[in-house]
């Protein structure tokens, strides 16, 4: 197999890797915020639910969650497994990453000085205005480095989709490697991931720079 064929074949899988990556972020970032808000809620059932959610999803391997989300519905309710594997894969990744994002948000929200809330309250801001105008922008600024960390991890974690036979780049790379007894696909995979992460770091670096116009 020529290097060109290997790269072409793996590039096809890379589209799926990107799909997992972007869709996971799209859903996990807001879902994590909801979990974080529930976690901080004074209403016990909400905060209790969020605590259990975070504990279970952080306490079990993502690989297991992928299998559970993909095949659980079939075993429990007899619902056939989706032919479009992207759906269960993204659901599993999103609920898993939401748990991590929720904890990052929480640390950010809890690090906010109480004076910011009080100043907003005295000025008459509603609770929603206080959260979205005053607190959230500062929280984002504070947690951005941790978020970047998670995003870089996500790029590499996408390879776990092989567990449920989603033909993303690394799954294909492994198949080629073992079929052709060649290490080249692994080198190609490494290059793909590295270049992707360099891009991610560059973009996040730009975002951080744009937000660092003030000191906390």
């Amino acid at each position: 197999m020529t290097l060109m064929t290997i790269i072409t074949k793996m590039a096809e899988g890379f589209e799926k890797t990107c799909a997992i990556f972007f869709l996971t972020l799209l859903f996990a970032i807001p879902l994590g915020m909801i979990i974080a808000l529930l976690r901080g809620s004074k209403f016990k059932p909400f905060s209790g639910f969020a605590k259990v959610y975070i504990s279970v999803l952080r306490g079990t391997p993502l690989m297991l969650q992928l299998i559970a989300v993909t095949y659980g519905p079939y075993y429990l309710f007899g619902i056939s497994v989706s032919r479009n594997k992207l759906i269960p894969v993204v659901v599993a990744f999103a609920i898993n990453y939401a748990a991590y994002f929720a904890e990052i948000y929480r640390s950010g929200i809890e690090s906010m000085p109480v004076g910011q809330y009080e100043a907003a309250q005295v000025l008459g801001y509603s609770r929603a205005q206080t959260f979205f105008k005053i607190i959230l922008p500062q929280v984002i600024r504070r947690i951005l480095p941790s978020i970047t960390n998670e995003i870089v991890t996500l790029v590499k974690d996408t390879s776990l989709a092989f567990t449920v036979s989603y033909q993303e780049m690394f799954t294909i790379g492994k198949q080629i490697a073992n079929s052709q007894t060649s290490f080249v696909p692994f080198i190609v995979a490494g290059a793909f991931y590295y270049v992707f992460n360099v891009l991610v770091s560059f973009v996040m670096g730009r975002v951080e720079k744009r937000m660092s116009y003030y000191k906390i």
Partner: peptide
């Protein structure tokens, strides 16, 4: 957001049933 998520799940199940 919760409804959005539920829709996502339903869409997933729907697709699964469709596949069946």
């Amino acid at each position: 957001a919760a409804i959005g998520l539920a829709c996502l799940c339903l869409a997933g199940c729907g697709a699964k049933q469709g596949a069946e």
